[in-house]
Design a protein around this nucleic acid. Structure first.
Lengths: 345, 345
DNA sequence: GGCCAGCGTTCAAGCGCTTCGACACTTCGA
DNA sequence: TCGAAGTGTCGAAGCGCTTGAACGCTGGCC
């Protein structure tokens, strides 16, 4: 193992000089810097992480707490996790994966042991039990998702309300007058998942503003449940011509069922999906969709924790900040104007 | 911050005694142990990770190198990552996420800095460029996937050949005589992804043994490409009654296209998927599928790295070991006997 | 010429933990 | 009764790094 001392010896300077060259915390003459840098690369020196953490009281690690829940769309989680990791690396930080089965204790452990300098919480619930653990130790953190009480916390999330409204607007602009929202399973609403509720709220309020008739139906995302939901919608509101789908699992079944019922998309019915970008290619016709920038989410969260870590080091309060990322509407083949003669009653 | 010394003072013993109580590396009297344990919990003591790593020359961290590739099925990656994390925790280890965009340098950095005690590589390619980096530093490791030259390495993977053969057997047992394999995109075969090739090999060899006619067609997994592949199969081999699908993206399109072409599943055509368990519910009819135990993969990999870490600490060679996990066939609604009168020519 | 300021470098004191060797005390067999 | 062996605890030396204080040197000023 190559140590600082080895590098110092080879460069003919003291250990502290090497340290200062590496950290840039003091001015070093050009000549010395170069000699040290040469020694570093010749020896293939990598500073020992443990010693660095101990002496510098900074582990240069961020903990990322990921949910284990089955009802969130996993590829998005992964995309966020990866963008967090990549962004963190750009600032010299590494990312530690914490699963939620440890519960609040995981956060406490990682922060108290100095294993991580800060924490990013994914899939934050309104009354998230991990948050008190953060507050108690004033652990630098960033939340992906919105808790009930965001006082003193940095949060970032998609603007789900805007996304819901965007769907309504798109259908309304095309001329649809009766629309349906096919949501997540009822369990998601029962536990008051913020993103689900905010999406529906945005959808609904915009529909009211624009004078549209609408329904919202939870849907488990299996073929059977989608069939049940669709037939209920069509019998309750036969004039429905526009469908907004938030549950990824329901998209395929919905398209199949509409076709099976003799409705062509988009001529007879329009479908707009709230989903990750990758999914739009998977279906025929290609989906008109409202997507959120998942990578951005990770990037902003990293900026926020690092900011809070720096603040804590200077004895300052963390930023109380809320960033909502705007959704993007991509118009494709699954939406169009409603058919001329709508069957009323 | 609570330190070992604080605990020692409170318990009225020396710091080393507390350390020994915590590590169990020396015998401690019952009375002393209890006093120390009380002090630990009263003070809410968590050992400082950096100091522990420095003094013990063990970070208690495993690095998990995840691919950034788009053409692997992400939820499985996530499932493995989570099972790795959970298994590692059970042994007192944490997991650091390394993305593959750092390349072999990421592995080197993490190992050389002592940030991680060992490395788990996911999605290993036949000629994986990260492997020389492991060998050069004799970093304790475990590979998920099979490299070309596994000498001196611990590997675990699904038994893809067995999975392919299992599909053939199931269709053959039902009485099918002509079957088709719808695989991954040709890019996957071009880069000689081991799992893709081994699956096809198992499928093909068993088909030959049992005297079945077969074709193998790559497929990108979009609706369009699936349509193209299916129509080619049906015109090349109109007698084909059984379909094996490995590309998750092609499953939905295939079912839709078969239906559109007037073929009912499973009466007119059988479909068997090589896919993760979660997917079987997503389709109508429910899929007969061959699945691999993803969680097991993570567990075994963790056992392997930890074994190799321990071996390295004792100056021993790492285990050269290959574990192939048996696939499981779950018969459901999408397969059945072939239709009586098959149209030949 | 003597003094001071500023720059570049070094010294040395930890950071909180593990672990080896030593020590005191008990137990037991000769 | 004495020494040997075993048991439980402690002291102290690091692990490799960071960082505040101190140092020597050069150059400019009065």
């Amino acid at each position: 193992m190559v140590t600082l001392a080895d590098v110092a010896r080879r460069a003919g300077v003291s250990a502290s000089t090497v340290s200062y060259v590496l950290s840039g915390k003091r001015t070093i003459s050009e000549a010395t810097r170069r000699r040290v840098e040469r020694a570093v690369s010749e020896l293939g020196y990598h500073p020992n992480a443990g010693a660095r953490a101990l002496a510098g009281r900074r582990s240069h690690i961020i903990a990322l707490v990921v949910p284990l829940r089955a009802d969130v769309y996993v590829p998005i989680m992964m995309e966020i996790a990866i963008s967090v990791t990549v962004s963190a690396r750009q600032h010299g930080y590494d990312v530690l994966l914490i699963t939620n089965d440890e519960g609040p204790e995981g956060v406490r452990r990682v922060a108290a042991s100095g294993l991580a300098d800060g924490v990013i919480l994914m899939d934050v619930e309104l009354e998230d039990e991990r948050i008190p653990a953060l507050r108690a130790n004033s652990t630098p953190a960033a939340l992906i998702g919105l808790p009930d009480d965001p006082r003193g916390l940095s949060c970032v999330d998609h603007d789900f309300a805007a996304a819901g409204a965007l769907c309504t607007d798109h259908l309304a602009d095309l001329g649809h007058r009766e629309i349906a929202f096919i949501g997540y399973g009822s369990g998601v609403y029962d536990r008051h998942a913020g993103y689900a509720e905010r999406t529906v709220k945005g959808f609904r309020e915009r529909a009211e503003q624009r004078g549209l008739r609408y329904v919202h139906r939870p849907c488990e995302g299996t073929y059977e449940s989608t069939a049940g939901v669709l037939s209920r919608i069509l019998s309750d509101r036969p004039g429905t011509t526009g469908f907004v789908v938030q549950n990824e699992g329901a998209i395929g079944p919905l398209l199949g069922l509409l076709r099976a019922s003799g409705r062509t998309v988009p001529e007879d019915a329009s479908v707009i999906a709230l989903c990750p970008e990758q999914l739009v290619e998977q279906y025929a016709p290609r989906l008109t969709a409202v997507t959120g920038p998942a990578q951005e989410l990770g990037r902003v969260a990293v900026d926020q924790v690092l900011g809070n870590i720096a603040a804590a080091a200077n004895g300052q309060e963390p930023d109380e900040r809320l960033v909502l990322l705007s959704p993007v509407l991509t118009v494709s083949e699954s939406t169009g104007p409603p058919p001329r003669q709508v069957v009323h009653r």
